Amino acid sequence: MQLLNVVLVIFLIVCAIAVERTKDLLGAVIIYAAYGLVMAVLWLFMKAPDIALTEAAIGAGVTAILFIGVISRTRRME
Rank of each mutant, 00 (worst) to 15 (best):
3 L>R: 13
12 L>V: 12
66 L>I: 14
75 R>Q: 10
36 G>V: 06
70 V>S: 03
46 M>G: 09
32 Y>N: 06
73 R>G: 01
36 G>D: 05
1 M>Q: 10
65 I>C: 01
72 S>C: 12
72 S>Q: 12
55 E>P: 04
58 I>K: 05
12 L>S: 11
35 Y>R: 07
18 A>V: 07
58 I>P: 00
58 I>G: 02
78 E>K: 07
65 I>W: 04
34 A>I: 15
23 K>H: 01
54 T>Q: 07
12 L>D: 02
67 F>W: 11
69 G>R: 08
28 A>W: 00
38 V>L: 04
13 I>T: 07
77 M>I: 10
50 D>T: 12
52 A>T: 14
29 V>K: 04
49 P>Y: 05
16 A>K: 03
38 V>H: 05
22 T>A: 12
2 Q>R: 15
57 A>G: 08
37 L>S: 00
7 V>P: 03
22 T>L: 15
5 N>W: 05
49 P>W: 04
9 V>K: 07
33 A>Y: 04
6 V>P: 05
71 I>K: 04
14 V>Q: 03
4 L>P: 01
58 I>C: 04
8 L>A: 11
67 F>R: 07
64 A>Q: 08
8 L>R: 10
2 Q>Y: 14
16 A>C: 13
4 L>M: 00
62 V>F: 12
17 I>T: 11
72 S>T: 14
8 L>F: 14
68 I>F: 10
41 V>F: 14
40 A>M: 06
71 I>C: 01
67 F>I: 04
1 M>K: 09
15 C>W: 05
8 L>Q: 06
43 W>V: 03
72 S>K: 03
59 G>D: 11
30 I>C: 06
32 Y>R: 13
64 A>S: 13
22 T>V: 12
3 L>Y: 13
10 I>E: 10
37 L>Q: 08
61 G>I: 03
43 W>F: 15
28 A>H: 08
8 L>G: 00
60 A>W: 00
39 M>P: 03
29 V>C: 08
74 T>Q: 09
31 I>A: 06
19 V>I: 05
61 G>S: 02
22 T>Y: 05
21 R>E: 11
78 E>R: 01
66 L>S: 06
70 V>L: 09
74 T>M: 13
68 I>E: 03
25 L>N: 01
45 F>N: 14
30 I>Q: 07
1 M>S: 09
54 T>I: 12
45 F>C: 12
62 V>L: 15
72 S>A: 10
38 V>Y: 10
78 E>P: 08
31 I>C: 01
23 K>E: 05
41 V>N: 06
60 A>D: 02
76 R>T: 13
26 L>H: 10
13 I>F: 08
57 A>P: 01
20 E>K: 13
58 I>R: 03
41 V>I: 15
42 L>P: 06
33 A>Q: 04
16 A>E: 10
54 T>C: 03
36 G>R: 02
60 A>C: 08
52 A>C: 04
24 D>I: 02
29 V>E: 02
75 R>Y: 14
55 E>Q: 15
43 W>I: 05
35 Y>G: 09
50 D>I: 08
49 P>I: 01
16 A>Q: 11
59 G>A: 11
53 L>R: 09
78 E>D: 12
3 L>C: 05
78 E>H: 09
77 M>V: 09
